[in-house]
Simulated assay, not measured.
Amino acid sequence: MTETQAPIVNPATLELEHWREGTFFESRDASFGALLGLRNLGVGYGEVPPGKSGCPFHNHHVEEELFVILSGEGEYRFGPDRHAVKAGDVLGAPAGGPETAHALINTGAVPLKYLSISANAATEICEYPDSGKFLAKTRDASGKPRFRFIGRPASDVDYWDGEPGI
């Protein structure tokens, strides 16, 4: 952020990235915490089309997330439960195990628009209960990724595997 730039962003002015994966996942979204000068708080805006989800069902071990539904309606899959959501609802996703896994699904007829706010941890582990995957990632002090790995526990190795002298 430059010294003359105000720490204000209107999501309507953001350049949104449109992406699609398979038949169920699709969104137009943008991350904009950095535009506000934030380093330790992630902020995003998303628009999910009817019948789609913007991310797989997952839980974080470090980061907490908060979602604010701006317009549309959907279903908040949280742990073993599903909750109807609408404009004005605020959703929490605490860090934890599969009991805090979450995903938003658009069950309405118009795009589901929401803000996502999260801790921007330097290191994170995520689990994906539906697919049995996990994600491990870390970044350096400047925010550049240092390590990112997606796998399944079945691919683990012994602690000493590959070490010199073993």
Rank of each mutant, 00 (worst) to 15 (best):
G79K: 07
L70W: 05
I125G: 06
N59D: 06
A84D: 09
L70F: 11
A6C: 00
A84C: 01
E73G: 04
K113L: 00
E64D: 11
I105G: 04
H58I: 05
Y159K: 12
H102V: 02
T2V: 00
P164G: 00
A95F: 03
L66P: 08
T123S: 15
F24P: 05
P49Q: 02
A121T: 10
S27R: 03
R148S: 08
E124A: 11
S116W: 12
Y128H: 14
S31H: 15
F149I: 14
I69D: 07
R77L: 14
E15M: 09
R146N: 13
C126V: 07
A95E: 03
E21R: 15
P129I: 09
G42L: 08
D81P: 02
G33R: 07
F147V: 03
P164I: 00
S116Q: 13
R152N: 13
L135T: 10
K137R: 10
F134M: 14
D140H: 06
E26G: 02
T107W: 08
G44M: 04
L66H: 09
G54Q: 06
P129H: 05
G72E: 03
R20V: 15
F67A: 05
L66V: 13
H102I: 01
G108L: 07
S71A: 15
Y114R: 04
F78G: 05
G97H: 00
L70T: 11
A103F: 03
E47D: 01
V110H: 12
A87Q: 04
N59H: 15
A87Y: 08
G37I: 01
V9A: 02
V90E: 04
P129G: 03
L41T: 06
R20M: 14
L104G: 09
A122K: 06
V48L: 09
P56V: 05
S71E: 09
G88T: 10
L38P: 04
R139S: 08
G108R: 08
D156E: 14
A101E: 02
N40T: 07
H58A: 03
F24L: 15
S131G: 10
E73T: 11
C55E: 11
P129M: 07
S31A: 14
V9I: 08
P164N: 01
S116I: 13
E26C: 03
T138I: 08
A141W: 01
E65G: 15
A93Y: 09
R20E: 15
Y76L: 13
R139L: 01
N10M: 05
E127G: 15
G162I: 08
R146W: 09
K133E: 15
G143A: 08
G151E: 07
A109Y: 03
R28L: 10
A119P: 02
H102A: 07
V85W: 00
D130S: 12
E75Q: 13
E163T: 13
G22S: 01
L104N: 01
I117T: 07
L41S: 03
